[in-house]
């Protein structure tokens, strides 16, 4: 059975350092769709144990008001990932983000331990979802097999810093160096019917550049973006939520196609635009996203 939250709205996924109690105690007030509680890069090597204790009690005791609780675990090339999985599952994390994923086998390795932990801690089997961060050229090239690796997998996320390092270049701000990975990943995700998220934008003084990059990845088809600061949330939500005008048009398209189909008419115009059945799924998707974001209350 497909997990009911597999396709939930994930426009904004905000990173938070598990080592910092002040950061993880109330991030829901900023209204992200998901938080990503980080056990990996943000946590110093000698504080991994402390971060796990903080994570466990935060998951058990803090009410995050429906915000999805994703935990980024340490990579499979470290001694930490097995205990990371145990604490995530015992605490009841919604989703585990696998760092440095390079193959379907990596996802299955994590999945085996997650299942074992669900049995150990009496959690429903299959209740813990997975997402994969692609951080290398090999990971990006294997995007399709990764997307198809597990029923638990909700999607893939680009990790631009490590990826550009592997590509032997740097983040330039133009997006040129990320274009191939972005295009490849979004196609793989769509082919496998999972979600896809863009990398973080770390220059907090350049909010216009951030908005421009967010508009770009929206046009490319991404579902959302990883974030490093609460200030970025509203920008992403505005760009990723259908406007009132788009919602009204999508509603008209769906109603007209349903009605014309019944009358045997295949092509017609709505507000001066030629419409046929090919527009149906897109219009439905616009309405579904607007509904999930609280901007559409209709019944289509």
């Amino acid at each position: 059975m497909i997990h009911p939250n597999k396709k939930r709205l994930r426009r904004s996924m905000m990173f938070l350092n598990c080592q910092k109690p002040g950061l993880i105690k109330d991030p829901y007030i900023y209204g992200p769709d998901s938080i990503m509680l980080d056990l990996e890069d943000a946590v110093a090597e000698n504080q991994k144990d402390a971060a796990r204790f903080s994570l466990f009690h935060a998951l058990k005791e803090i009410d995050y008001h429906g915000v999805e609780r994703v935990v980024r675990i340490n990579g499979l090339d470290t001694p930490h990932w097995k205990e990371d999985i145990r604490v995530c599952v015992a605490g009841g994390a919604d989703t585990i983000r696998i760092a440095k994923t390079e193959s379907a086998a990596d996802v299955r390795t994590v999945e085996e331990d997650v299942l074992a932990a669900e049995r150990e801690f009496s959690r429903p089997e299959g209740s813990t979802l997975l997402m994969a961060a692609l951080e290398s050229c090999l990971g990006v090239l294997n995007a399709l097999e990764i997307c198809r690796s597990s029923e638990r997998l909700i999607g893939i996320a680009l990790s631009g810093g490590d990826y550009t390092k592997d590509l032997q270049t740097t983040i330039t701000g133009t997006g040129d160096e990320l274009m191939g990975a972005r295009q490849h990943m979004i196609m793989a995700a769509r082919a496998a019917k999972v979600q896809c998220w863009d990398t973080v934008f770390t220059n907090l003084d350049d909010m216009e550049g951030f908005a421009e990059e967010t508009r770009l990845i929206k046009r490319m088809g991404f579902d959302g973006k990883s974030l490093v600061n609460p200030r970025q949330i509203a920008v992403v939500h505005e760009i990723f939520t259908p406007s009132e005008k788009e919602v009204i048009f999508a509603e008209k398209v769906v109603r007209e196609i349903d009605e014309k189909k019944a009358r045997g008419i295949g092509v017609f115009t709505v507000d001066g635009k030629m419409i046929d059945i090919a527009f149906y799924d897109g219009a439905k998707r616009t309405l579904a996203m607007a509904k999930a974001a609280g901007r559409y209350k209709g019944d289509l």
């Binding site: 204790f53 903080s54 058990k60």
Partner: peptide, 10 residues
Amino acid sequence: DCTLKARVEC
């Protein structure tokens, strides 16, 4: 409270 517990346990 949850942070205090976490620090004592750790």
